[in-house]
């Protein structure tokens, strides 16, 4: 019961932050994708199962406040978690800060790639009324900011959790 309450609180606060608070802070802070950062963090550090439930919950709420067809963001977030889990199981298994940051880049890329694929399909179906919105310099600036800000938030979350939970230890590459 407590776990469900925590998840619901995370869903509510995370959604309000993403939809309403971050956009009002202006450029470049409005490029931060807090939802994907939380999902990546939970999937990599806590558990895959919690990550996928958060992806499901966040996705449904974001779909209510999205210009995209209902369900697209939820499916995109779930597929992102599946992709993250495959990379986590096979490559980035040690729950270190560097693994988390690498998964952060991969997760952000997967999520945005799916939205880009949808945009491309939209353009192909109706080139007169639609543009390809990811083949311009502004998109790459914004995407770079998103990656940078997401990694910063992930590092902050990791270090915060590390300072209060001795079981989770930060691993750094030690030089000889």
């Amino acid at each position: 019961m407590a776990k469900i309450t925590v998840i619901l609180i995370i869903l509510l606060i995370g959604s309000i932050f993403q939809i309403s608070f971050l956009p009002s802070l202006g450029y470049p802070i409005d490029n931060l994708n807090l939802i994907i950062s939380i999902i990546i963090f939970i999937t990599a550090i806590i558990s895959y199962k919690m990550g996928i439930w958060l992806a499901f919950g966040f996705g449904l709420i974001l779909d209510l406040y999205s210009i995209y067809p209902f369900g697209l963001l939820a499916i995109a977030l779930i597929l992102t978690v599946i992709g993250l889990n495959l990379f986590f199981d096979n490559f980035f298994t040690n729950r270190s800060l560097y693994s988390l940051l690498a998964l952060g880049i991969i997760g952000t890329f997967i999520f945005n790639a799916m939205l880009a694929i949808f945009n491309l399909l939209n353009f192909i179906s109706n080139p007169v009324d639609n543009n390809i919105n990811f083949l311009n310099i502004t998109f790459f600036y914004n995407f770079s900011w998103q990656i940078g800000l997401n990694l910063a938030i992930l590092a902050l979350m990791f270090l915060s959790l590390d300072s209060i939970n001795r079981k989770l230890r930060s691993n750094f590459i030690l030089g000889k």
Binding site: I16, F21, P23, S24
Partner: peptide, 21 residues
Amino acid sequence: LVYRMINPLQNFAYITGGKIN
């Protein structure tokens, strides 16, 4: 129902963010 429940919080969050900005 979700819109009605969340809208007041969103108003507050958007205005607060705007003031900070």
